[in-house]
């Protein structure tokens, strides 16, 4: 189990000065997105446990344990948080901090102005660090690009986005 691009991830792990860099660079690795798609959560939890409970861990063990945590960040937010509770995050240097980054930056609740103003339409996951100012895609019948106009909290957990092109159409219900 755990088929990932281990050599590239090992390098990213060794080069990371901070947990933020680890989070960003691991999330950019497509093999972890694939891992999230192909493996069941219980397999990932078991894989994490097996690797972190060793007395003498190899770099590969540590990288794979981080890989599991990052793979979980590609799950639906609520499911991911539920799975995170099953990990003993203190087993890794950056385990707890990694979860904090995910909670702080991964979740944005979208509001659409105009038709459906103020209505929570969907929770999405974003990637990378920093405040997100644009999103692209389809949100409950609204297609197009959206620009952030207002952030209700300092860490942008709640943000208001407005369509920025004319093709974006509101939900007519």
């Amino acid at each position: 189990m755990i088929s990932i691009d281990i050599e590239a991830l090992k390098r990213e792990y060794l080069f990371a000065n901070t947990v933020e860099q680890l989070y960003q660079h691991f999330r950019e690795n497509t093999s972890l997105q694939n891992l999230a798609k192909t493996e069941k959560p219980e397999i990932l939890v078991e894989g994490y446990k097996k690797r972190t409970e060793k007395d003498e861990r190899s770099i590969k063990d540590v990288v794979e344990a981080y890989a599991v945590l990052i793979a979980v960040t590609f799950y639906d937010y609520k499911e991911a948080i539920k799975i995170f509770k099953k990990f003993d995050l203190s087993k890794l240097e950056w385990g707890e901090e990694l979860k904090d980054i995910y909670r702080r930056e991964a979740r944005i609740t979208i509001y659409i102005t105009g038709q459906g103003r103020g209505q929570v339409l969907k929770e999405i996951h974003t990637r990378g660090s920093g405040t997100m100012s644009y999103i692209k895609g389809q949100v409950k019948g609204v297609v197009g690009d959206f620009k952030q106009t207002k952030s209700e909290t300092s860490n942008a957990v709640l943000s208001t986005f407005v369509p920025i092109n004319k093709s974006a159409k509101g939900d007519r219900r």
């Binding site: 390098r11 060794l14 080069f15 861990r57 190899s58 770099i59 063990d61 540590v62 890794l92 240097e93």
Partner: peptide
Amino acid sequence: NRQVYDFSASELSAIPDY
């Protein structure tokens, strides 16, 4: 600050020259 050994030190010499 913190000094961390998250993995076995015996592996360090086997890491490639990136």
